[in-house]
């Protein structure tokens, strides 16, 4: 696959003396949905945070949409407009309405007019199924609604890749599905996605590939069917038994 959307080549990363990513080799094809799972502290969040440069890598190469992000002189700002990200804690801007949250980057980074940006924003709100919340402030929305606004905010830049960092971990159980449904729609539309999640039902239904990480290493990489039916490593078996039995 010469034209992978994301390619990690021998990627290494340390926080001080602690190695958080070790010899990562992974490729995500355009349109592929990759679920990354593993115990906490395994490096899965760090892995996807490297893709849009929120974390720097110290060794190896990382190519995103045909551009190496470790090469000096690469515009991270331009790259980030093509890679959307959704966070565990939503991180909506609390001093702006839902509409303003979504319009900020298109207006300030893309230079769109307010009218154009608003039109796109309203379309996106309809797509994440909350068209009536445009004028609300984040504090007046439920967690599930806030996370869907966060998805709309990321989509407003028309990214080619979407990164999800435990998007449902901070949600009450009854709100998880409304967010997963939106993500499923996105996957069906052919979005390239890297998703860190413990939602194994989502992984089984939507992912093309599951990556299991432990202690900074990719321990297992398989199709969801293969991974859930017969995990090869002891650590993956142990992890699955804990996460599926709770």
């Amino acid at each position: 696959m010469a034209d992978a959307a994301i390619r990690f080549r021998d990627v290494n990363k340390w926080f001080g003396k602690h190695q958080v990513l070790a010899d990562i080799n992974l490729a995500v094809s355009p349109g592929e949905v990759m679920v990354v799972c593993g115990p906490s502290g395994s490096g899965k969040s760090t892995l996807i945070r490297c893709v849009n440069g929120l974390e720097a890598i110290q060794g190896g190469d990382l190519v995103v949409l045909g551009e190496s992000i470790v090469r000096s002189g690469v515009s991270m700002s331009a790259l980030r407009t093509r890679v959307g990200m959704v966070f565990q804690s939503f991180n909506l801007f609390p001093h702006m309405t839902v509409l303003e949250n979504i319009m900020l980057a298109p207006v300030r980074v893309r230079g769109l007019s307010a009218t154009e940006a608003e039109k796109t924003a309203r379309t996106l709100l309809a797509r994440v199924r909350i068209p009536d919340k445009a004028e609300n402030y984040p504090a007046n929305l439920s967690g599930g609604q806030q996370q869907r606004v966060a998805i709309a905010r990321a989509l407003a830049m028309q990214p080619k890749i979407m990164l999800f960092d435990e998007p449902t971990s901070a949600l009450d159980p009854e709100m998880i599905n409304e967010v997963l449904d939106v993500m499923t729609d996105l996957a069906k539309e052919g979005m390239t996605m890297m998703v860190v999640t413990h939602e194994m039902g989502f992984a089984r239904r939507v992912a093309h590939r599951v990556v299991f990480m432990d202690a900074g290493r990719v321990v297992e990489e398989a199709t969801p069917d293969a991974f859930f039916a017969a995990p090869k490593s002891e650590r993956a078996k142990d992890f699955l038994s804990k996460i599926l039995s709770h």
Partner: peptide, 17 residues
């Protein structure tokens, strides 16, 4: 919170923005 800076950075805003 740090998450605010990260979210703004992730949508492509510069440091000054």
């Amino acid at each position: 919170p740090r998450g605010q800076v990260e979210a703004a950075t992730a949508v492509g805003l510069t440091r000054a923005q």
